[in-house]
């Protein structure tokens, strides 16, 4: 297991707690499932230590709209890599609500989906491989393609915008 973010392997600094059961007593950084966050919002916000939320498939990212600046991290769980709901959640969080914290893909995260995840706004990936393999995979995945048709929140220039720039440059030159 390794977490890759910003072209390096980072430490796991978060404890993911279950839907039920005691919260850690100290000031640990915790990630709670959305359902628990909704139930125990006041307690969780009042607690010392970092706070994050885990979204599972079927959850509504809209439920976090008012609390995003309280969250340092949101993890989106892919129960199977074929379950693509998390891509929509990521774009809604980033592009609609302007979430600036870490957006981490967890669960069935494989090399061949990482570029799509990145384009949708993820900036961290939890892979099941060891550190070196994980880093190699993420690096390879992120540079596999260099042309993009869709405008998404990742800021990569689309083919349409580059064409437009080119046309404008030709116009200016002539």
């Amino acid at each position: 297991m390794a977490i890759v973010k910003n072209d390096s392997v980072i430490d796991q600094e978060w404890i993911t707690v279950d839907i039920e059961g005691d919260l850690p007593a100290g000031e640990e950084n915790i990630i709670v499932p959305l359902a628990r966050f909704k139930e125990e919002r006041e307690t969780l916000i009042g607690r010392n230590g970092g706070l994050g939320v885990q979204l599972n498939s079927g959850d509504a990212p809209e439920d976090l709209a008012d609390d995003l600046d309280r969250l340092s991290i949101i993890t989106v769980n892919f129960p199977a890599y074929t379950d693509g709901r998390g891509y929509s959640y990521a774009r809604v969080l980033r592009e609609r609500f302007g979430f600036k914290g870490e957006l981490r893909a967890i669960g069935d995260v494989l090399r061949d989906q990482i570029l799509y995840m990145h384009r949708c706004g993820f900036d961290a990936y939890e892979l099941k491989n060891d550190d070196d393999v994980s880093l190699t995979k993420v690096r390879a995945a992120l540079k596999e393609m260099t042309v993009y048709y869709q405008p998404t929140g990742d800021g990569r220039a689309t083919a349409a915008s580059l064409r437009e720039q080119r046309r404008a440059a030709i116009k200016t030159a002539s």
Partner: peptide, 13 residues
């Protein structure tokens, strides 16, 4: 065609 080609959000519908 262009909009749908490798649409990052809609590749695992």
């Amino acid at each position: 065609r262009q909009w749908s080609t490798f649409h990052p959000e809609f590749t695992y519908l």
